[in-house]
């Protein structure tokens, strides 16, 4: 019956509108989180840059010590991969693209005969790898949205421990880098052995080439390396969080738009159905009245 169809449509429109309200709210929340997480990246920059500058100078100050501590291993039997994803879904391709990149890296390393251990950040990461038959050694949950430095320290000590015990020769990081509000990209980089950052040319020319160290470089580097690792992981966590919120905001904006369109279409169909049923009713009444009159 036409009336039933109309009731059905009305119910669907209600559902679509309710969903739209939710996606709209999520969009607004994500938007406010973007600003906050971006501000945290900015606040972290001086520390990250300072850390890189110190490592660079220390490495230049005593190349021999740096070589011993930071050299690339000759053979890699085992490696550890740290993947930073999000705690929540509904964020477009954020989780899937970083997880796929992580899986690709694991597969390439395995193809080279390397044993791979996986450490994951974010609720969405471990199930992905476990479903595909990879073992996840440890999974961190609960701070992917708003990481603080203490979280970074815990992650850093977890990934550094097997490296210090010489169980793995390399540690990789797969995460989403927040290049700007419009661009985020999934990057794979080597965390350990620590790579000495490239110095911008203007810094190199300004340095007089003679630097004092207290205590001496080798000791300094031994203590400094774990701090630098923490700093790099913290930056990656912050950028991951900002990327997550950006991605979610975009996904939710698209979902809201879809809901708008769907609601509009359904309303049109419903109006037509109502019009149809009214027309049919009038026809019936008119037809009935005609029949009565001619029956007289």
């Amino acid at each position: 019956m036409a009336g039933g169809q109309e009731r059905n449509l009305r119910r669907r429109i209600k559902t679509v509108n309710a969903t739209r309200k939710i996606t709209k709210a999520m969009e607004l929340i994500a938007a406010s989180q973007i600003t906050r997480s971006q501000a945290r990246i900015t606040a972290n920059r001086p520390f990250r840059d300072g850390m890189r500058r110190i490592i660079l100078e220390a490495a230049k100050g005593d190349p021999a010590a740096a070589e011993r501590l930071l050299a690339q291993p000759e053979t890699v039997n085992a490696a550890l991969v740290l993947v930073i994803a999000g705690d929540r879904g509904l964020s477009g391709a954020y989780n899937s693209s970083v997880l796929r990149a992580g899986e690709r890296l694991v597969n390439t390393l395995r193809a080279q005969g390397t044993t791979v251990r996986i450490v994951a950040v974010g609720k969405k990461a471990a199930p992905y790898f476990r479903f595909r038959g990879f073992d996840v050694e440890q999974s961190f949950i609960g701070f992917a949205d708003r990481p603080n430095f203490a979280d970074a320290r815990v992650v850093a000590s977890t990934v550094a421990a097997p490296y210090i015990d010489a169980e793995v020769q390399q540690v990789f990081l797969v995460s989403t880098r927040f290049l700007s509000a419009g661009t985020q990209s999934v990057e794979t980089e080597q965390l350990l052995p620590l790579s000495v950052p490239e110095a911008p040319v203007e810094v190199q020319t300004k340095l007089k080439g003679y630097t004092e160290f207290e205590p001496e470089v080798e000791q300094l580097l031994t203590y400094l390396a774990p701090r630098a690792l923490e700093s790099e992981i913290f930056s990656a966590l912050l950028e991951g969080a900002a990327s997550f919120h950006t991605s979610q905001q975009r996904a939710m904006a698209a979902a809201t738009e879809n809901a708008d369109e769907l609601g509009q279409n359904l309303t049109r169909i419903m109006n037509r159905a109502r019009q149809d049923s009214i027309t049919t009713e009038i026809m019936e009444i008119v037809g009935g009245a005609e029949a009565l009159r001619s029956g007289k």
């Binding site: 110190i54 100078e57 220390a58 100050g61 340095l207 007089k208 003679y210 630097t211 004092e212 160290f213 207290e214 205590p215 300094l220 203590y223 400094l224």
Partner: peptide
Amino acid sequence: SDGDFTILPQHTETVGD
């Protein structure tokens, strides 16, 4: 860890803990 120090303008390049 080597002791107290003071940094003044024109101090030489130094890295330390």
